[in-house]
């Protein structure tokens, strides 16, 4: 039963309660695949390969050129379409725990369970990389030196993260402390 969803150019956020009797709510961040991006990448790869084959057959260049172009194509496709993740989910089970799921395009699902009593606080943080800044949702976990990232592969916008954060705050009995920030 889908309760609520938000979409933008890259991600779709879906909040559903699959098991109303169990009171477990699920939050999904689904990666929206861009068709034009796929077309552009594969067209570029084909163009490089076509040029190499043309040079080999008509200009009588070395066969190694075709091999190199194939390697370059594989590298190009891997580089630009490297995100094999389809969806990341957070399953919140009050009084029990939080399950973090990563769904790959191949169908593989990686799950990580964090017991509710180990979660000290869910926090929204600003992350800085050498090229960009983005928001991330993390869990401060007892007896762990590092925080647990809720969405390890995807970088959904803050408007999506806030809903998951509020749900996690409610589940872990943490007050939603937003007083330091302007509304």
């Amino acid at each position: 039963m889908v309760e609520f969803s938000i979409s933008n150019a890259r991600y779709t956020y879906v909040h559903d309660q699959k098991y109303p009797s169990e009171n477990a709510d699920m939050h999904h961040i689904i990666l929206r695949r861009s068709g034009s991006k796929y077309i552009f990448v594969y067209a570029s790869a084909l163009l490089v390969l076509a040029c190499a084959i043309y040079l080999y057959f008509l200009e009588e260049k070395s066969i190694s050129l075709v091999y190199y172009s194939l390697l370059f194509d594989i590298f190009l496709v891997k580089l630009l379409l490297r995100k094999p993740v389809n969806k990341e989910s957070v399953v919140i089970m009050p009084a029990f725990g939080v399950q973090l799921e990563t769904h790959y395009m191949s169908g593989k699902v990686v799950r990580c369970f964090v017991p509710i009593d180990k979660i000290l606080k869910p926090v929204l943080l600003e992350c800085v990389t050498p090229v960009t800044c983005y928001w991330t949702l993390s869990l401060i976990v007892r007896e762990e030196s590092e925080m647990v990232l809720v969405f390890k592969n995807l970088r959904p916008p803050i408007k999506m993260l806030v809903h998951v954060w509020k749900a996690l705050c409610a589940a872990t009995d943490n007050k939603e402390e937003t007083c330091t920030h302007a509304k």
């Binding site: 600003e126 983005y134 916008p157 330091t180 920030h181 302007a182």
Partner: peptide
């Protein structure tokens, strides 16, 4: 437009 504005800290 895709870059999210950071909220200002009010103290």
């Amino acid at each position: 437009d895709d870059i999210e504005e950071a909220p200002d800290v009010i103290l």
